[in-house]
Amino acid sequence: MQNTFYNEILTDHNLHPAHKHELPDANFQLEGVNPSCGDDIVLKLKVEDGKIVDGAYLGDGCAISQASADMMLDLVIGRTKEEAQRLSEIFLRMIKGHITEEEHEELEEAGALIDVSHMPSRVKCAVLGWHTMDEIFDDPEKAAAEAEAAKKE
């Protein structure tokens, strides 16, 4: 019995995520959903002076969607918004199958999802967290308002 795709990096991030928790002082928050398969995450970021100082997510979904969000946060916490966006662009290109060896290494553990490029039906799962982060930076007012609303709940 082979076990190619579901490697230890992926299953470990899924079962023992480092960043799946509440983040009360997040100043940006956005929900990302894949309606057709039910993957659902809420991404929370704490950004100060253009730098992601902390991040977390909550949600339900398949191992790929959840682990990918966890790997992403591992990678972007401590980086600037611009660096995070650049890494996200590399990750999305990896999923489409166009990436260099150096770029693959830059993604650290998130690079473990490279085989998704051969699994078209799972692309949406893998990119959910990354798309949600991109959307936060594309429309920061909305994400800030959602973080405010979450604090009042």
């Binding site: 190619t4 579901y6 398949c62 790929i64 699994m119 799972r122």
Partner: peptide, 21 residues
Amino acid sequence: VHPHDIAAMMDEDGVCVRAGH
């Protein structure tokens, strides 16, 4: 274990099943 992961792992074992709603 999420059904989409079940179907993907079963595919690795040569078993075709349906996952979802």
